[in-house]
Nucleic acid binder design. Structure first.
Length: 120
DNA sequence: CAGGTGACCTTAA
DNA sequence: GTTAAGGCCACCT
């Protein structure tokens, strides 16, 4: 079985995708935080892989995921890098030198969301 | 089986 | 404020 099918069949990837869809417009979340909320602590790299291989049909807000320092983790200057910045700016997020201010824009899930989403 | 890789993270200088 | 090293885990060669 190829990589994409093994991922799309993975309940772990599904949890990651579900968390990403919860990030509100105008906010961002780190790969590590998404992993934590999905019940997969310490697996930030798995989040990046799940996003890269997610099917188009999911239309995930992948642009709201940045690294823990607030920096765009895509290859500098690449088309997809530029697109992430454009999408964030369309939502009112200031991006300067390929980075967002995490103090201002980091998503802080409320208690209700956590209670609803931990069991899956 | 043994490395190499990556849209990462934390810690320690 | 920064970088470097070690850790991390799934996948690929």
């Amino acid at each position: 079985m190829n990589t994409i099918n093994s991922l799309t069949n993975s309940s772990q990837a599904a949890k990651i995708w579900q968390i990403v869809t919860m990030i509100p417009t105008g906010h961002v979340c780190s790969y590590g935080k998404v992993a934590d909320l999905a019940g997969l602590p310490g697996r930030a790299r798995y989040v990046s892989r799940a996003l890269k291989l997610a099917p188009e049909s999911l239309t995930l807000p992948w642009h709201r995921v940045v690294n823990s320092q607030g920096k765009i983790s895509l290859p500098f200057g690449s088309p997809v890098y530029q697109q992430q910045i454009s999408r964030l700016r369309e939502e009112g997020v200031t991006v300067h030198h390929g980075r967002v201010n995490m103090t201002l824009y980091q998503w802080r899930p409320d208690i209700a969301a956590l209670v609803l989403d931990i069991p899956f």
